[in-house]
Nucleic acid binder design. Structure first.
Lengths: 120, 120
DNA sequence: TTAACATATGAACAGTTATTCATATGTTCG
DNA sequence: CGAACATATGAATAACTGTTCATATGTTAA
């Protein structure tokens, strides 16, 4: 039987062990990093970003948001659920109407931070 | 022919026109919001977040990152390409090895901002 | 030049996700 | 109560995305 390996792949032969060890120690734990990714994921959709910006100014009801952004009521409602379960927006019911607003002041900071990065 | 509509859906009957108009005027333009979502989307994956945190301390080569995070070289390479095209990391070649590092200081601020939100 | 190594890339696949459609829930008013 | 309205939700579909596999590119040293 001929051993005919194509070309051996890099299997960590080139690792700089000291550096890797040092970095490993300083890394946040896996759960934190996972949660952080989940957090940013919520901002990573243009529909949700647009909703957040709409709410930047005023509280709005679902219909207002849908009208404002040219979306269906259903689509908005689904996304508001995502935003709500991520604690980015909160809801207030007034009769038939439900008003949504930003749940947290520093959501603004995060959005502004993103914009300032783009401006470079 | 019987007209038998199920139940008429909300078609923006409840819109608060003044509010909507005011918000519309203050909204950033569509392109900005789209770019912003694209920007956050890059942070919205735990592999990429982990890579960014690994690079928080030191520049690292592809093999180091793969070893450090328990990923294949290929997976890391693909993600580095995403990070690079989003201007989050930059590459420096030294012989066969390519070292990656964070491209921008305020990437740190963005990561920290996310963490501080989680801590609430 | 050739072998060995480090990284990059294209295609395929699997898992995820945003939207739509249909319908349910919850509220007000007559 | 029942009709009308505002919102929510489950299921299905379509589009997107991350990983893997196979292979290509680029670099060094013998």
């Amino acid at each position: 039987m001929e051993e005919k390996k194509p070309i051996e792949k890099c299997e960590f032969l080139c690792v700089h062990e000291d550096t890797v060890r040092a970095v490993t120690e300083k890394m946040p734990d896996e759960e934190t990093l996972y949660d952080l990714a989940e957090f940013f994921k919520v901002f990573g959709d243009s529909t949700r970003i647009r909703i957040l910006y709409a709410l930047h100014e005023n509280e709005l009801c679902v219909c207002d948001i849908a009208n404002l952004l040219g979306l269906t009521q259903t689509a908005v409602s689904h996304q508001l659920r995502v935003l709500k379960s991520s604690k980015l927006v909160k809801a207030r019911r007034n009769g038939k109407t439900v008003f949504y607003s930003l749940d947290d002041d520093h959501i603004h900071s995060i959005l502004n931070m993103g914009i300032s990065h783009l401006g470079e």
